[in-house]
Design a protein around this nucleic acid. Structure first.
Length: 681
DNA sequence: CTTAGGG
DNA sequence: CCCTAAG
């Protein structure tokens, strides 16, 4: 996760921030509402199915084993039975043999907005051995007919809806979830699938979902979109130089008139939550008053150039220092812990998905439907995603050797159910990096060009921030609400509690997973949960089942366990936003006029509406610009800055450095003079 | 809050 | 880009 330092530039790598580092602290942004608003409808469906399975477990799951159906390991497949539309989501167990496949197809077919819907064929029921993969590569005709729709907008709406239409509505035919047996992994693989559940309870749950699905989604999107529009009404300076001028005039100029503080306040309001009031203020703006003193002393003063930060109409302003992210969305999938760090008894532990907890989409194939994706107003452009496979979050399972396969299945199912019930987040990866700014458009993110679409990835992430009012907590483990668990392992195994919902650990009361390593690494979510309600007493033999969330050591170390402190808010490093040439030009222009010591003024002069550029950013950029200008062109990286600009940078830098020195000496002299005068008097 | 500078 | 001392 740490980027290579660029020492060759002589800067001792201080430029390293060009690549995001891990978060330093955490915050929580997703509201409780997020969680409750059906964000996990699809998941709940699965969970309900899983619950059903649990109930019927002994007769179904175990029967498989007794039947000698060993193929279930890594091959069992769950699929819907489309032949029975009324039953909706009848689950069927099929022995996929080598053609194991499950369904998970996510597709965005954008009609009028960027992202209209995600189709989610939720046969996410198969887990493979080393890596649980929901693979859709196989065009298994038997699968892929059921299409509950999961709408996950970038604004958080998340809903499901069964697709009443024909299977054709699915973009891709390959909607099977594939169980992959990755032999290269030393751990033994296995898979589970929902057994025959012709009368699955799930169908009922499913029938509910459609309603809220669409409505929730649409409203969510609309409101979000309207916010954008409001913003742009206010702040977009796109093709409006005048606007910019007016705007700047509204704010205190660089010489900070008396009203400066008030001006700042107003500005702050404008930039924050009072967008709608802004347009009116604009009308009241007064033309910018001329400079008082700069004119005479600043040789660069004449030039006028303003950077139109919103030129591209991309809603950058919405960024608004949005630094709070759900914890689970912050963790990088590739930072997942190794299995070794968790298994307290390697011989017996079964490690699922060694590659980490993040559910990683494999081979996302994406296509664009519009040729002018990259064009400016591509509102009508669609970006279609065809997700071939997901990895399911990593599970760590520890069972005794003499446990039955049926038990194992049950345990795994428990783990999966726990995760699913906890809800999932979808992460988006571009070039392997997580896109954490949910407000960015696909266009901004670079997902609009066909060329870039193959770099997209999706992840399924356990919803670690489990709301206290969520069913799992309130119903199943109410006691956790009152527990302030700050230790890694519960001191009293007799008092089982649930952790963050997805982290439930099924363990014997006296065999709490107390692996020292785990403790050492702050796996404080390893809380035991009661297994009393489990039907199978044989479960008593199992040592522990530990679904471990995607989580880095860092995250583990920081995230508190207390459900309340689970609001563990994350301060996410801002997304990197390289300065464009036009921005650089604006910066140079402003610095030429104002000097290098007045970044606040520079900010207001040239980047006032670029909320994502703070004066510190500008100062830093200037710093790097000066550096860039001094090094040889070959050593420069990133978007090349015109030499002309760099020359100006150096000139301005030299000038202001000298000027500063002058001022300094001037003041010094003045002080001396004054002192002399004072003494003479 | 700003500035300046290190990381 | 982050952090923070200092003003």
């Amino acid at each position: 996760m740490v980027m290579k330092k660029r020492l060759d530039n002589g800067f001792n790598g201080f430029l390293d921030w060009t690549v995001p580092r891990g978060p330093r602290s955490f915050r929580r942004v997703h509201s409780k509402k997020d969680f409750e608003d059906g964000q996990i409808c699809a998941i709940e469906l699965l969970a309900s199915l899983a619950g059903k399975l649990l109930q019927d477990g002994e007769s179904t799951a175990c029967s498989n084993t007794s039947d000698g159906d060993h193929s279930v390991i890594g091959t069992n497949v769950v699929k819907e039975d489309k032949s029975n539309p009324e039953k909706g989501f009848k689950m069927k167990c099929c022995d996929g043999g080598s053609s194991q496949s499950c369904d998970l197809a996510i597709e965005t077919t954008d009609q009028k907005q960027n992202l209209k819907k995600l189709q989610y064929v939720d046969n996410i029921t198969v887990f493979d051995c080393t890596s649980v993969v929901i693979n859709s590569n196989s065009s298994d005709e038997a699968c892929g007919d059921v299409k509950p729709v999961v709408c996950k907008t970038e604004f958080g709406d998340y809903c499901t809806k069964p697709e009443e239409g024909s299977p054709d509505s699915l973009e891709s035919t390959d909607t099977g979830v594939k169980i992959i047996n990755e032999e290269q992994h030393e751990t033994k693989g296995f898979g589970i699938g929902f057994p025959n559940m012709a009368d699955s309870h799930g169908s009922k749950d499913l029938k509910k979902s459609p309603t809220m699905a669409n409505s929730s989604f649409k409203t969510g999107f609309r409101s979000s979109f309207s916010r954008y529009r409001n913003y742009f009404k206010l702040a977009s300076r796109d093709e409006d130089e005048k606007f910019r001028s007016n705007k700047s005039s509204f704010h205190p100029n660089s010489f900070r008139p008396p009203s400066r503080i008030a001006g700042r306040r107003i500005r702050k309001l404008l930039n924050s939550k009072h967008w709608k009031a802004a347009p009116k203020l604009k009308d009241c703006e007064v033309p910018r008053s001329g400079s008082i003193d700069n004119e005479t002393r600043n040789p660069f003063r004449k030039r006028k150039l303003y950077f139109n930060s919103e030129r591209r109409f991309q809603g950058d302003g919405l960024y608004k220092r949005r630094r709070l992210f759900d914890r689970s969305s912050v963790v990088n999938s590739d930072e997942g812990m190794s299995s070794e760090s968790v298994s307290n008894s390697p011989e017996k532990s079964i490690h699922i998905d060694k590659s980490g907890l993040a559910a990683v989409l494999h081979g996302a194939s994406v296509t664009t439907s519009s040729a002018q994706q990259a064009s400016f107003h591509s509102k009508d452009s669609h970006v279609k995603f065809s997700i071939r496979s997901f990895k399911v979050p990593e599970l760590f399972i520890d069972v005794p050797e003499n446990a039955t396969v049926g038990l194992l299945k049950k345990i795994v199912l428990e783990a999966v159910t726990a995760i699913l019930k906890g809800g999932l987040h979808v992460g988006v990866l571009v070039h392997g990096k997580k896109v954490r700014d949910d407000n960015r458009t696909l266009l901004q993110t670079g997902l609009s060009c066909k060329d870039n679409l193959d770099t997209v990835g999706f992840t399924l992430e356990p919803n670690l921030v489990h709301n206290s009012t969520s069913p799992l907590c309130s119903e199943d483990h109410p006691q956790m609400l009152a527990c302030d668990i700050t230790e890694l392992v519960p001191s009293s195994p007799v008092n089982p509690v649930s952790s963050s919902g997805i982290l439930d650990v099924v363990a014997l009361p006296n065999t709490t997973l107390t692996n020292s390593k785990i403790q050492d690494e702050n796996k404080h979510e390893l809380i035991t949960t009661s297994i009393d309600n489990l039907p199978d007493n044989s479960l008593q033999d199992c040592k522990a089942l530990v679904p471990v969330p995607e989580m880095t050591m860092e995250a583990l170390a920081v995230v508190p366990l207390n459900p309340k402190s689970k609001r563990s808010e994350v301060v996410q490093r801002r997304t990197r936003r390289p300065f464009s040439v036009s921005e650089v030009e604006a910066l140079v222009q402003a610095v030429e006029e104002l000097g290098t010591g007045r970044w606040r003024d520079v900010k207001f002069r040239a980047f006032e509406n670029a909320d994502h550029r703070t004066y510190v950013d500008l100062k830093d950029k200037w710093k790097t610009l000066v550096h860039t200008a001094r090094i040889s062109p070959q050593q420069r990286r990133g978007e090349p800055v015109p030499q002309e600009l760099l020359d100006r940078v150096l000139a301005a830098h030299a000038y202001w450095s000298q000027h500063q020195a002058k001022q300094h000496s001037k003041h010094h002299q003045a002080g001396v003079v004054k002192a002399i005068e004072g003494s003479s008097c």
